[in-house]
Design a binder for these strands. Sequence first.
DNA 1: CTGAAAGCGCTTACAG
DNA 2: CTGAAAGCGCTTACAG
Lengths: 341, 341
Amino acid sequence: MVTLKNIAEELGISITTVSKALKEYPDVSEKTRKLVRETAALLNYQPNSFAVNLRTKESKTIGLIIPVVVHHFFSSVIKGIIAQAEKKGYLVIILQSNESYELEQKQIDLLLRKRVDGILISLANETSDFSHLNKVINQQTPIVMFDKIAKVVKCSKVIIDDRKAAYTATQYLIDIGCKKIAHFRGPLLPQNSIDRFLGYKKALLDNDLEFDVSLVYTCECGDASFEEGKANAKQLLKDHDDVDGIFINTDLVAIGAMKEFNDRGVKVPEDINIVGFSNWFMASVISPSLTTINQPGLEMGKKAFKLLFKEIKSRKANKLITHKQVVLDTDLVVRDSTKNK
Amino acid sequence: MVTLKNIAEELGISITTVSKALKEYPDVSEKTRKLVRETAALLNYQPNSFAVNLRTKESKTIGLIIPVVVHHFFSSVIKGIIAQAEKKGYLVIILQSNESYELEQKQIDLLLRKRVDGILISLANETSDFSHLNKVINQQTPIVMFDKIAKVVKCSKVIIDDRKAAYTATQYLIDIGCKKIAHFRGPLLPQNSIDRFLGYKKALLDNDLEFDVSLVYTCECGDASFEEGKANAKQLLKDHDDVDGIFINTDLVAIGAMKEFNDRGVKVPEDINIVGFSNWFMASVISPSLTTINQPGLEMGKKAFKLLFKEIKSRKANKLITHKQVVLDTDLVVRDSTKNK
DNA sequence: CTGAAAGCGCTTACAG
DNA sequence: CTGAAAGCGCTTACAG
């Protein structure tokens, strides 16, 4: 591998001058600069990033911890993050927490030991203790949370207004004439499951509809799956066969539920109206296509990186870091799984 | 940040001894070793990875270049790679080529400049020149290709037998009674599009069915999309309304085609039998569910990392690197988009 | 405009 | 068993 030393020896000048010439320092003569550049190109010189990292104490690399990779929404976020990072000359190390708190902790430690310039994270469903995140903050590594966040942790966040979106979805079911609306919520812990549930509840109450806890189905298994949708739908038919609308926490679960209804001769939307959440690509291609809340994954990824980038810059300049919370817009996409009565 | 120097000063011993004690060198007294370890723990010492990288000339980081992230098969591969890498203490930098040759080249350079320990890559559809890959090989950085490979490049590869899988799919259509079978192939360049096409053709010929070029629809747009499936299906109905079976290069395209047929009152499987390729999750939940070839993404990712890991080890030990080509098994998953006549 | 020197924080061959 | 020293390949404050 070619080093500065090689170029210096080749030209009979000092390493210092070579370094300065390549970095466009003003105090190098045009002649020397040109000579150095030509020689560097000739020898195909590439700066040793390990040495640069050690000197500059930065690696132009960030870490990303995400609960699941094979997932329409999250993979869209990943795409947004790496696209934006590349623009700014940053690389992204990706880690999957598998919705496990233990793994998430280990991965945070791993990234800190790697001395990444910053961390982006969406929390595992299991995570209810945040000391690992506070550790990151205490040692001044910039961190931005997105989608699945912890409200009490003091850092920048990019989210959607889950409560409002859920309210919109539920209100829509009411507007088209549903009288008894169930809710399949996600696992207990994550903030967005809670918020979506609260939005659902509030819409009912604001419309003088009874809120009945037995109409709320919680995900026992910890992850929102197709199977869970089927199981919940089956149980719902047993418990309440007069339900005429369901607001479901995630498209995948909604698709499972629709499958179960279809298998049992329950018609969507004629017998039951269904609204999902996230607008997975799949939602537009199944039959009936799924009415859902569009959640802007790509945009969320881009925004999260932008915030992180600003904090990295601020920290480098020893400026005060101010935390921001960005709320992205969602919208209701009406398709064929719902129908005005 | 705590350094070896801090620990040494704290204990009044040399940096050398501290380093050796922490690295379990045998020539350090048990007493010193213990003392050093305790102090390191107390001060929460973390080795500076930048310095370690510079000294050891390795970063325990690999690069991954993938055409698309938001994609069921590729995201499964990513999951397999990062899971396996984590087990061996490696981190993964992920880059998306967007099916662009130009980007792919830049990203290879980026990774080489970063001095990653190895590279995993699945080629962009556009890529037909391989000098960037040979550059990697020439400078002795281990590289393993998976799924979308270049046969002529000398390195390890993990693939499926696309030709055989396509043959199986086509033979199955013939077996259930199809007389006129079309093929929606992918873009022109990638090896697996070519191989799937060849498998289709061979199955026809082996069964004494006529091979008709006009029954093969090529993807003009460069990426295999839902829209492409719709467009091809539309064109097919115009050109050949007597086709009774289609073997389609990718599930997503197949789903687009099914949508178009459904919209136009053409029944699947009654009027046309359809076999897809890849076994996206979506294939199992749409109606009718899609008969397809299962392509083991997770396993492919794991295997690709394992091969790369071996080469990294070999290279470090200055051993000869032998390239391997691993062919993973595929199987036909029969669902409701096909039916025995 | 040029360069000697210090230093980033490690690892390791070598001397004692 | 311990430690001084060299060196990985850069960057940059400082002297001339």
